[in-house]
């Protein structure tokens, strides 16, 4: 399968392109949106893009079980990140009454 054909019918390159675009959309969300909750969701999208690439490579190397184990570790870290990140957003909202990252640019109280 070559080029365009691989993208349309699910070759390795197709999955990698989807992972790249997903990563780019997540990064765009972090860069362009100001709400901290949306930026957090963008980070989750970027983690997901990495997972898609990891498991695509695992599939095309003959169904490597190590990749699924590492996927499990990645989502464990993502779950920790979700708990801590959202706790920080709640803490910021308590102190500053905002969830806008531009309004939280100062380290002073």
């Amino acid at each position: 399968m070559s080029g365009m054909d691989a993208i349309l019918h699910g070759g390795l390159q197709g999955y990698l392109v989807v992972a790249l675009l997903l990563f780019a959309l997540g990064l765009a969300t972090v860069l362009l949106r100001r709400t901290l909750l949306l930026q957090f969701m963008g980070v989750e999208l970027m983690l997901n893009a990495a997972n898609v690439a990891l498991l695509a490579f695992a599939r095309f190397r003959g169904g490597d079980a190590q990749a699924t184990v590492f996927y499990l570790f990645i989502i464990a870290v993502a779950a920790c990140e979700a708990a801590i990140g959202l706790a920080l957003v709640i803490g910021l909202f308590r102190h500053r009454d905002t969830t806008d990252s531009d309004r939280a640019a100062s380290l002073k109280q």
Partner: peptide
């Protein structure tokens, strides 16, 4: 799990719209 947590925080903070840009 993660999306329920996120939606729960959104409801709790009651900030459904993006704030005006500084």
């Amino acid at each position: 799990a993660i999306m329920v947590l996120v939606l729960f925080v959104i409801m709790m903070l009651n900030s459904h719209q993006e704030e005006e840009a500084v």
